[in-house]
Design a protein around this nucleic acid. Structure first.
Length: 571
RNA sequence: UCCGGGAUCGUUCAAUGGUAGGACACCAGCUUUUGGAGCUGGUCAUGGGGGUUCGAAUCCUCCUCCCGGAACCA
């Protein structure tokens, strides 16, 4: 059997032959082959505006928009705003900002489920007239009791057999604000003994006298998710309606409504949501972290929210590549957070300018270097990118080096500075540690060194100096604050806890270290929020919005790979 | 307990009855004025039992384990 002659314009295999198709692309190819939706692909990203987007949403956003792009189709943005008690305009703005920042464009296709309320209402009437829906007066508690349990079927509501006329009248009066919250609902009449709870006469409309962020006080009845989502997809002529696994049980109901209403019927497809090691991923838990002060807000650089990652310094490119890399499947999986960290390393390695910054300063006096001499050394801005050029870095008699680049009693294989030892100053000379100055308490105050003037840009002939360390001039350094962020949790699976505890038990108490007295090279004097750099030998850093004219503030995005730490750990 | 899903290197994604492969991680080496980057090589996997077949990760069957579901939330 051959289907090569049936390939069509949107066939992704010809676009990228190496990359295997994921299961959604296979389904789409099938639709294209059979012509179920003609030759179009139209997806949508349907957030509820009740919180901030996180990296898990990014996976869904990237999936929906990329699929549309790949097949030459479109992707809508639709706010699923059917619950006025939880939703706010503020979230609409933040969601749009985040999607735009990620680099996706819904053009003019910004929709709201609330725009469809009138259509939904008349579809509900249609179902009532066809005998497929009824008004039920059971209380929420009784509705639950009538629904049955995992092993027992439900029982029919005493209101299940009301006449069409009575149902129509009651439903109209529900809309007319005649009844208080919780007194009546509209239910679909399906099957109270169905093994799938969603089919046991699900609620379609509830009474909610609440102000809606868009429709104001026009409505006091609001449709439920199940009577909104598929219908909205249908109105927008969506072809593949992609959602997460927990909606799998809702698909029969999605299909039931489309069939009974006899409207355009998209295919719902479920995939596994993203989980990350060392991370929690739920709005409720984010709220706990924010409210209980474990972090400083939704955009705290330790949060896996899009705004948090953005503030941390992640690039949208790296997040998109991450989403592409992890793929899409139905297995419940937990992606190693190092995959995300590697994506930002890879991107920033290619584009971030290199600079020198001393996080924990230790003063070094170079005794044989003249007191008032300033030497301009040339430093390469980015060895990965020739076009980035070079810059001058001032070298003076007094410099700072990092405290952990000196060991009074060096361990084995340590090839940085130690008494009597030599080390290369990055882009500069080789220096030798002649003596260590301490205070009465025995703390190291400064190092006295000598430099070898014949080592600039060349190796000495008689000896080999392997270590290279970064440094800044004492006179010309700029004071900076550096915020060293680490993982928010100490364990891979923060939700795995002992009896009686919750994820808070696994919070990393050292997820933020404040270094208020860092010294950075003078070229970093006028940095602006959002700029990203590699601090040589240390890591990638971004300029935080807290930066002021007098003091730059840097966030550590991610450390450089640290092979030395691994060696040190092993020995 | 009932229904719906899922199970392949440490992790993630492939292999669609025909040599179980890639990436990350890990290990070893080369290179290096970032213990960064790069390059080369290597270790490691089909949840279990039966069956069909010349041949099974793939088909059948029984079992085990994991996830989701009983909001007038989405």
């Amino acid at each position: 059997m051959s289907d090569t002659e049936l390939t069509n314009h949107g066939d992704p295999e010809s676009a990228n032959p190496e990359k295997p198709l994921n299961f959604i692309e296979e389904i789409i190819n099938d639709h294209l082959r059979t012509g179920r939706f003609g030759q179009t692909v139209h997806t949508r990203f349907p957030p509820e505006p009740n919180g901030y987007l996180h990296i898990g949403h990014a996976k869904s956003i990237a999936l929906n928009f990329s699929l549309a792009e790949k097949y030459g189709g479109l992707c809508n943005l639709r706010f699923d705003d059917t619950n006025p008690s939880k939703e706010e305009e503020e979230y609409v703005h933040s969601i749009k900002d985040d999607i735009r920042w990620l680099g996706f464009d819904w053009e003019d296709r910004e929709y709201y489920a609330s725009d469809y309320f009138e259509q939904l209402y008349s579809w509900a009437e249609k179902l009532i007239k066809a005998g497929h829906a009824y008004v039920c007066d059971l209380s929420p508690e009784d509705t639950r009791a009538y629904r049955g349990t995992l092993s027992e079927p439900g029982r029919n509501s005493p209101f299940r057999n009301r006449s069409v006329a009575e149902n129509l009248d009651l439903f109209a009066r529900m809309r007319q604000r005649e009844f208080p919250d919780g007194t009546r609902v509209l239910k679909a009449k399906i099957d109270m003994s169905h093994p799938n709870f969603n089919m046991r006469d699900p609620v379609m409309y509830r009474i909610l006298h609440a102000h809606h962020h868009r429709t104001g006080n026009d409505w006091c009845i609001y449709p439920m998710y199940d009577f909104t989502h598929g219908q909205s997809d249908s109105i927008e002529k969506i072809t593949q309606s992609i959602c997460t696994l927990e909606f799998e049980n809702h698909r029969p109901l999605y299909d039931w409504f489309c069939e009974k209403l006899a409207i355009h019927h998209p295919q719902q497809i479920e995939f596994a949501r993203l989980n990350l090691t060392y991370t929690v991923m739920s709005k409720r838990k984010f709220l706990t972290l924010v409210n209980e002060g474990y972090v400083n807000g939704w955009d705290d650089p330790r949060m896996p929210t899009i705004s948090g990652l953005r503030r941390r310094g992640y690039t949208p490119e790296s997040i998109r590549k991450f989403c592409e890399y992890i793929g899409v499947a139905k297995n419940n999986s937990v992606v190693d957070v190092t995959i995300l960290e590697n994506q930002i390393r890879e991107h920033l390695n290619a584009i971030a300018p290199r600079v020198m910054a001393v996080l924990r300063p230790l003063k070094v006096v170079i005794e044989n270097f003249p007191e008032d001499r300033v030497e301009e050394l040339q430093a390469i801005n980015n060895p990965e990118d020739e076009r980035a050029g070079s810059r001058p870095v001032p070298f003076t008699r007094e410099i700072y080096i990092d405290q952990n680049d000196f060991m009074e009693v060096p361990v084995r294989r340590y090839f940085r500075l130690a008494p009597g030892k030599e080390v290369r100053l990055r882009y500069g000379y080789i220096i030798k540690c002649e003596s260590v100055i301490k205070n009465d308490a025995g703390e190291i105050l400064e190092l006295r060194c000598s430099y070898d003037p014949d080592t600039l840009g060349k190796q000495p002939e008689d000896r080999k100096v392997k270590g290279v360390i970064h440094w800044v001039s004492v006179d010309q350094a700029v004071d900076a604050e550096v915020r060293i962020y680490d993982r928010l949790f100490t364990t891979e699976h923060p939700n795995k806890v002992e009896e009686g505890q919750d994820f808070r038990a696994n919070i990393n108490p050292d997820s933020l270290k404040l270094l208020a007295h860092a010294k950075v090279e003078p070229s970093l004097g006028g940095v602006k929020a959002g700029e990203r750099f590699q601090f040589e030998r240390v890591g990638y850093f971004s300029v935080d919005p807290d930066t002021s004219d007098s003091k730059p503030v840097f966030n550590r995005i991610v450390s450089l790979r640290d092979t030395w730490a691994k060696i040190a750990r092993k020995s």
